[in-house]
């Protein structure tokens, strides 16, 4: 059980690393585009498209990590003004609600990806990327979010939202 818990946290960390990698990748791709266009008169056909995919990835793959580090902005008006018992109840409740969203997001995201694959939808650009590839970032991120909220529930009634940035 403990090992499983550790592995789960590792998986979420891998998501965070990938998210960070995507942001840095975007930066350098766009910088490359500027240099290539301005100084070599050779604009690329792929930077805009890949940047968008990378940023979508950076959000959904990094979101679970933000949950685990209490980085999602939370209103702590009520939480800070109730006793510890109520605070614990609220923590369970809000994490359970987060899990509900994550499950719906993952389940319907997965179905959506399957449908896109079945219809053979591609991007409308020169690259003709099969759209199920970037779209798969949603259910993958969704799975990470499910894991994160389950772990928050296992951790119990800790409610640390609001203070972190």
């Amino acid at each position: 059980m403990k090992a499983l818990y550790r592995i789960a946290d590792q998986v979420i960390n891998i998501g965070a690393y990938l998210a960070g990698f995507f942001i840095i990748l975007t930066t350098f791709m766009i910088f490359y585009e500027i240099v290539s266009r301005e100084f070599f008169n050779q604009p690329t056909i792929w930077v805009t498209e890949f940047s968008i995919y990378a940023i979508i990835g950076s959000c959904f793959l990094g979101s679970a990590y933000a949950v685990r580090t209490y980085s999602h902005i939370t209103v702590d008006l009520l939480i800070n003004n109730v006793n510890d018992q109520i605070k614990t109840v609220l923590a369970y409740l809000s994490n359970a609600l987060g899990l509900v969203f994550s499950i719906i997001f993952t389940f319907y995201g997965f179905h959506h990806v399957m449908k896109t694959m079945e219809l053979g939808i591609t991007s409308a650009s020169l690259l003709r990327i099969p759209m199920y590839i970037p779209e798969a970032l949603l259910p993958i991120g969704g799975v990470l979010l499910c894991i994160a909220f389950i772990m928050q529930i296992i951790d119990g009634g800790v409610h640390k939202g609001g203070e972190h940035l």
């Binding site: 008169n41 604009p43 805009t48």
Partner: peptide
Amino acid sequence: KAYGASPVFM
């Protein structure tokens, strides 16, 4: 491209 120009995406 065929006309010798470069397409830019923005």
